[in-house]
Amino acid sequence: MAFLFRRLGFYLAAFVAAATINFFLPRLMPGDPVQIMFSSAGAELPPESLQSLKLTFGFVDGPLWQQYITYLGSIFTGDLGRSIKYFPAPVTAVLGQALVWTVGLMGIATVISFTIGSLLGVLAAWRRGSAFDVIVSVGAIFATSVPAVVTSLIVVFVFGFTLGWFPSGYAADPRLDPAFSLQYIGSVLYHGFLPMVTLCAVLTGGFAVTMRNNMINLLGEDYVVMGRAKGLSDHHVMIWYAARNALLPTVSSLAIAIGTILGGSLVTEVVFNYPGLGNILYQAILARDYPVIQGQLLIMTATMLIANFIVDVSYVLLDPRLKGAL
């Protein structure tokens, strides 16, 4: 339990660090920070709205530390300010809705690609040097070396525009009302299919390589050899002796991969015009909507930290040597 609490404390510190970057960045820029952050809003917003927006970001009369406390105060009360582009919508509302799509896309793609990638890696390592191993290894090199933006653009070009098999925009048919109906869910799946496949294509190779290398590194371990000497079936040794152990370092490398997954997901959303965080962010960047750009860093960091925590917990659950830690 102590272990997980320590991790939680660390995550809190990391979150505050991200907030600190947000706080100092406008103040480090040459020129008036207020001017930088709200320049595009100045003319359009009523003065009292602008005033409350400034307050949220800690632009109060007082020393820097007081401004900092004010800023942290607003963050921890869940106030990330209001979007300038979608004024008066609060940043949390703008990003919150998009977050649902992003987390759904990212989460499902991660689970699918982790499962498929790890399986491929296990089989490739077990049949080291076979045609299967060569195909998986070469395929993985291709998949990991092509940037997500490139994969997305090629997929959208081939399947969205040229073949026209799948829509290349929106999370669901915009003519349908969101409802828990078969038609709506079907539409969500149909629209989400291409971004999902793209993201899986980007991620699977990396997981396959990691798992393959982890497997190869432990195939010489005595317990794997003893499993074979016991006359157990090949599959049994491969899964319960080798893969089950290789899963541990693979899961911990998943924690580091989350950042990449998040990045890939953002880019994919922009290309597919999918209404997740990436797309909102793209619009915000074009409009220089700083409260939203800053808000996304905090929300993404929080997402990443929660994902890291889930990885921590699953690691503890998977490794009996850490049973005491929970």
Binding site: D222, M226, G227, K230, G231, L232, R244, P320
Partner: peptide, 25 residues
């Protein structure tokens, strides 16, 4: 071969610390 292993020839390995599968009871 699968039937032969362990039933006819069993084996004790060098590293006592490492010859049992660490993740299984």
């Amino acid at each position: 071969l699968a039937a032969f292993r362990w039933r006819e020839v069993a084996m004790v390995f060098q590293s006592a610390m490492n010859s049992l599968n660490p993740v299984s009871r």
